[in-house]
Design a protein around this nucleic acid. Structure first.
Length: 422
RNA sequence: GGAGACGUGGCUGAGUGGUCGAAAGCACCUCGCUGCUAAUGAGGCAGGGGAGAAAUCCUCUCGUGGGUUCAAAUCCCACCGUCUCCGCCA
């Protein structure tokens, strides 16, 4: 959510930003509703002032005079109830409109219609070359019996999967290496809830627009698609001490996604599944643009370094306007080489939001002058499993169908080759 | 699942219908005193919205949302949360 004062003073910038993101937001209507809100507020304040004044008089009056004053008061109250009703109606629309106003994308964000317009800003390594025709991870993992997709579908339905044996060891190894790598950066590991109440979803910007992408329980909670939701909710409605900054969390959680809009996409394998696990980086910092930019690069770089530890070719793209979420100012995606598809696939997404999320979540801090401010928030994937296994398996496959274990993972997997005859 | 208690400012905690946005203490800030520290004296110190150059003024907020009343932190209802006991349970 943006500050209404800021919106009113920067209408053209807001509109241009929404257009760049290809997000519909009726700013003109918002201004009209806001005018009405202000008018009714002032009107009501005046009436309340009158009411308070008369109420004090009643307290001091006696007998007939008192009865007379009370009677006069009832007339005033009738008028107030009407204003209150009007204000309530206006506020409902106001809130609704405010939640639709997107944050402004950074100048450096490229224009674009889809992720095809994302710009490559970095390339690391070169696509893995093979002396044979590389296979896809589904075929490889099934042959090695380290994943079972058929029974996954039988038991869990579409996009269901089982990991087995060394597939589990490999996922576990990634978690452990991630815990080591990212916590060494000063991030505080946290295990966070996935079953989360509505407030944090509104606060992070996943609701109200993303309703259809979320699983919901009969008790009203939602299953989070990312640990970001609970982690950002952690300090909801709190005032933080400035000495706490930067807050650096490394959240681990199961993640659930309905993939409602992706029915035909990636129907096989581990690229797009309904449930997975993820380590997520979450940052809260002082409300300064330079801080946001600094930590944005930092969290993205942390993940790049992790991928480099695994020696998997990747490139980093800066996402174009239409590929940005409602609250995001700028976003980098890291995409890993997937030989079976002969392309790069997204593994990580690093974004900053300025105070968009913290304003919604009511997270504040006192700056050096003692003023209350909304801190800036950022988040980035640290590493998701099992999606990362796709690139590991496919890039490290050998002609005989066995998988070389990336050196950095060997201590955690406990072997150098998966599938070796013994 | 059953029974009960509770939810007040950064913290502790008083306040059960009328200048209560709220005593007192702690913490914090300013000033004073003292060689430093400690101790001590005076004052200040919740947040949102609005008017104003400012001083200041108006308004809302005592978990949240409704209700009763001329008037609600205080009474009633619902919800959320916390705690205790019983039951169940990884």
């Amino acid at each position: 959510m943006l500050d209404i004062h800021f919106i009113r003073e920067n209408i053209d910038i807001i509109k241009a930003g929404a257009a760049k993101k290809h997000i519909d937001a009726d700013i003109d209507r918002l201004i009209i509703v806001d005018d009405e809100r202000k008018r009714l507020r002032q009107e009501l304040d005046q009436k309340r002032s009158e009411q308070n004044r008369r109420s004090n008089e009643i307290q001091r009056a006696n007998g007939k005079e008192r009865e007379k004053l009370i009677e006069a008061m009832q007339h005033l109250k009738a008028g107030m109830a009407e204003s209150e009703e009007q204000l309530k109606t206006v506020m409902v629309e106001w809130q609704k409109l405010m939640l639709t106003v997107p944050n402004i994308p950074d100048m450096s964000v490229p224009d674009g219609e889809s992720d095809a317009n994302n710009l490559e800003v970095k390339k690391w390594g070169t696509p893995t070359e093979f002396s044979f025709t590389p296979k896809g991870h589904v075929e490889l993992m099934t042959a090695l019996d380290i994943a079972d997709f058929e029974r996954g579908a039988k038991v869990a339905g579409f996009r269901g999967y089982f990991l087995k044996g060394d597939g589990v060891l490999l996922a576990n190894a990634v978690w452990q290496l991630a815990l080591k790598h990212f916590s060494a950066k000063g991030l505080m590991p946290m295990s966070v809830p996935s079953l989360v109440r509505r407030e944090s979803f509104l606060g992070t910007g996943y609701l109200p627009q993303g309703e259809e992408d979320l699983y919901k329980t009969q008790d009203g909670e939602y299953l989070a698609g990312t640990g970001e939701v609970a982690t950002m909710g952690y300090y909801m409605d709190e005032t933080l001490n400035i000495s706490a900054f930067p807050v650096r969390f490394l959240a681990f959680s199961p993640c659930f996604r309905r993939e409602a809009g992706a029915h035909g996409k990636d129907v096989r394998g581990l690229i797009r599944v309904h449930e997975f696990f993820k380590w997520e980086q979450v940052i809260l910092c002082k409300a300064e643009h330079d801080e946001s930019v600094h930590f944005h690069d930092w969290i993205n770089r942390n993940t790049e370094e992790f991928i480099e530890l695994l020696h998997i070719p990747y490139h980093t793209v800066v996402n174009c306007g239409s590929d940005l979420g409602l609250g995001q100012v700028k976003k980098y995606d890291i995409e890993l080489w997937v030989p079976g598809e002969n392309t790069y696939r997204e593994i990580s997404s690093a974004s900053y939001f300025h105070d968009f999320q913290t304003r919604r979540l009511n997270i504040r801090y006192r700056d050096a002058e003692g003023n209350l401010k909304f801190p800036h928030s950022l988040n980035s994937t640290a590493i998701p499993t099992p999606r990362i296994l796709v690139s590991i398996i496919e890039n490290y496959q050998q002609s005989d169908g066995t998988i070389k274990v990336p050196e950095a993972l060997v201590p955690y997997v406990g072997k150098t080759i998966i599938g070796a005859a013994r």
